[in-house]
Design a protein around this nucleic acid. Structure first.
Lengths: 187, 187
DNA sequence: TTGTTTTCTAATCATTTGATTAGTTATGAT
DNA sequence: ATCATAACTAATCAAATGATTAGAAAACAA
């Protein structure tokens, strides 16, 4: 029988995710990953395949983390206030320990635009649909809004949370708070 | 007397700007620039210094273009509607010919975050101040808003236009329009 | 035409990149 | 203890990167 792996693939992937989150895909080299993950380049490729695959797995892990955050708001009582609370939680999440990393998915959208790896692209658009569903559900809750209004407000909130993900990379906390408060003044 | 330059530095810079606008700093190589600008790498460095300097000059040119757009709204009648019109013009500008390039400044903020070249950073924050001034002036026009409200609404609009710059890279036109319309129901 | 000056071309430099190789080490079933 | 297997290390590969070099070409004053 062969020897066992010295490292835990979930643990080293978490380090990879942190690095991609902070620096993006193109600015993160395999050598940086190797150093940060504590395993060498060969082991990275042995465990994941190649750099693109490490990135995809990092995105999946990020999505899981974000989903854990989201679940709280999916389970709790419904309504606008619930969406607003999610915005605040998202802002805290994307600026954990004042790291100003933004949102890995938003960063990735910005880095690649529409010319994105297909698997990465579908992971992200899948999550956008997920968010849309949450927003829609909460907007419909105890409300007399017509379908057209809800559609527009969902579009609005999706872009607003994208903008929030970008803003947490560069803006101060008080500006972020003003933004969230203002976003929900009229919906 | 020496020979004259075969190329016009403004024209080749415009090509460089287009490339940085489309692909960002790190994903644009000197060889891509050379091909697109129609001059070789030596000439690029002879005219501008190095890659970073070409980028800085590209940003300056972009800023000038954006400023030409902005001037229309600085000169025209004041008020909320004026800001809204600027949002629409900005959305059209960042998605000219359906190129989905977004805003070069927003793209740059997203690519580098706060760890940005000093000159690039001050150029961008300088423009943010410019926008803040425009928004403030128009919000104050024929309005009884208190100082605190105006401060919050300016913060809101600055982040909203950043989000719009990001959104034009990936979203459809109708979603963009819903976003702008909804943004201005809140102020 | 000649000579001087600068632009331009093409080749090359040292690094860095993603990826792979050859060879060594450790594990655990027998 | 032996040995088959897979994980590991370190070195290396070809390609791409930003930058620079040496020399040819062009323009104009004299």
């Amino acid at each position: 029988m062969p020897r066992d792996k010295k490292y835990n693939e979930v643990e080293v992937l978490e380090r990879a995710m942190d690095l991609f989150w902070k620096s993006g895909y193109n600015s993160t080299s395999l050598r940086m990953l190797s150093k940060e993950m504590g395993i060498n380049q060969f082991s990275i490729n042995a465990s994941f395949g190649n750099k693109q695959a490490v990135f995809l797995e990092s995105l999946k892990m990020y999505k899981t983390k974000l989903h854990q955050l989201l679940k709280t708001f999916e389970d709790s009582s419904n309504g606008i206030e619930n969406i607003k609370n999610f915005f605040y939680a998202f802002a805290a999440f994307t600026n954990l320990d004042n790291t100003k990393r933004g949102c890995l998915m938003v960063n990735t959208m910005s880095e690649f635009g529409l010319e994105m790896d297909e698997q990465v692209g579908s992971l992200i658009s899948n999550y956008e649909q997920h968010l849309r569903a949450l927003f829609k559900k909460n907007l419909e809750f105890a409300s007399t809004k017509d379908t057209e209004t809800i559609k527009k407000q969902v579009n609005y909130l999706v872009l607003a949370i994208g903008g929030l993900g970008l803003a947490t990379k560069v803006q101060e906390q008080n500006v972020i708070e003003d933004y969230i408060e203002m976003t929900f003044t009229n919906i």
